[in-house]
Simulated assay, not measured.
Amino acid sequence: MTGEFRQDEIVQEAIRNLFLGSVPERAEDLTSLWEQLDPTFQILPDVHKDGRIIMDAGIYHVVRFNHRVVRSFWIGAFAAWEGYRAVAESEDFPKVDLTRLRELVTAFEAAIQNDQSDEVPLPTGVPEPGTLPDEDGDPQGRAAAELSIIAVGWALLHEVRHIQHQQEGTSASVYDDTREARHREEFSCDEFATRFILDQVQRYSDENGDDPVIVRRKREMAIYFALFTLTLLAKDSWEVSDTHPSVQDRIDAVCRLMGNDRDETAQAVTYAAFVTLRALWPSAPMIVVGDRST
């Protein structure tokens, strides 16, 4: 049914656990945020009157998404990792084998186009969303899966910031405010999600004894993979619109937020992913290694 949705406590707990698993050091901040905003997360069906791809926020406390979006972020992370793997393991860059990447992109597009996003089985080697491959038996699959989870967290935090704007009275109305105001809000939401995931890395490392460089690298990669998935979702609609900045401008803005000292390994991995995507889609947005502030 197109009008059905779920917002029971199981859904709310699952989202809280996703955030806590992605940024455990922010537990107190998350509690405060929840007390302040009282957000409600709704899962909508894949076939809905409001569209096929649903991830939005409204009426001051509701964040909506559907299974199709979650599945898209999952496949998108595996596709990004595959782009990197294909380059890293190739002995001849001009002859990189992109067969597997094409298969994953095809699976991504099928998840978008089919009435039910899980209508077609995922490619061999890609588990169902939420299933973490064995770290020893499939370390690359495990990496892609973990990055996907944090990437979804980034996307949902973006929507939480929209709720915050609405409650603060600083939200840009689609009907009344200017295009520039709506774009500023989108950049603000990307910034909030990015900073929330990255700003307390040192605290996490101090509490868990992990190398902060490695922790930040993983989180930067997850944010890049979220942007990679947004690129896939926005195929042929990458340019600026009345409601959103261009995908390229959003990528550039997030990279600037990370600063000139953003992790080189995370940049290299993501650069390979975007380069291989451009081999399939030549006009796709791109991540630029280094500073793009000028």
Rank of each mutant, 00 (worst) to 15 (best):
Q267T: 03
G209N: 06
K49I: 15
S293N: 13
D211V: 05
Q166Y: 10
F73M: 04
D115G: 14
T99G: 15
A234H: 13
P212Q: 01
I287Q: 04
Q166M: 15
H162E: 04
F108D: 04
I197E: 03
D249A: 09
P39S: 03
S241I: 06
A155S: 08
Y175F: 15
L30N: 01
I75Y: 07
R195G: 02
E207G: 07
V87T: 12
D249I: 11
E185Q: 11
T229A: 02
T131W: 04
I150C: 08
G259Q: 03
D211Y: 10
R161W: 07
V62M: 09
G130Y: 04
M286F: 12
G83I: 04
V70Y: 05
A273R: 10
V62P: 11
V215Q: 03
E207T: 10
I287V: 14
L280E: 07
L20H: 05
V174Q: 12
S171H: 14
L198F: 03
R219E: 02
E9K: 04
T231G: 06
I75S: 03
G137R: 15
E168V: 10
E103A: 05
A86Q: 10
L98G: 04
F228E: 00
D56E: 14
I15D: 00
R250P: 14
R262Q: 01
E35M: 13
T270K: 03
Q42E: 06
R262I: 01
A273H: 12
E264G: 12
W81S: 08
L101I: 12
V105P: 11
L33D: 01
E239H: 09
D252S: 05
A155G: 07
P282S: 03
L30G: 02
D261P: 10
G21N: 08
L257G: 00
K218P: 09
G153D: 03
D263P: 08
L277G: 05
E185N: 02
I59S: 13
G58E: 04
R26E: 15
A172M: 08
I149M: 11
V289P: 12
I53M: 09
R68W: 08
D29T: 13
E82Q: 08
G169F: 10
G259N: 09
T131H: 09
W154F: 14
D249V: 05
N208A: 04
A27N: 08
D29A: 08
F19N: 07
A151Q: 02
D134C: 05
D263C: 00
A268Q: 12
H158Q: 03
D38Q: 14
G137N: 15
Q166F: 01
A86G: 08
V275N: 13
A88L: 11
A14T: 15
A279N: 10
A14L: 12
I43L: 15
G51E: 02
L233Y: 06
F5G: 05
R52M: 02
I197F: 03
F192M: 09
Q116V: 12
P24K: 01
F187M: 07
F108H: 07
D199A: 04
R85D: 14
P285M: 02
V254W: 00
G3N: 15
D8G: 07
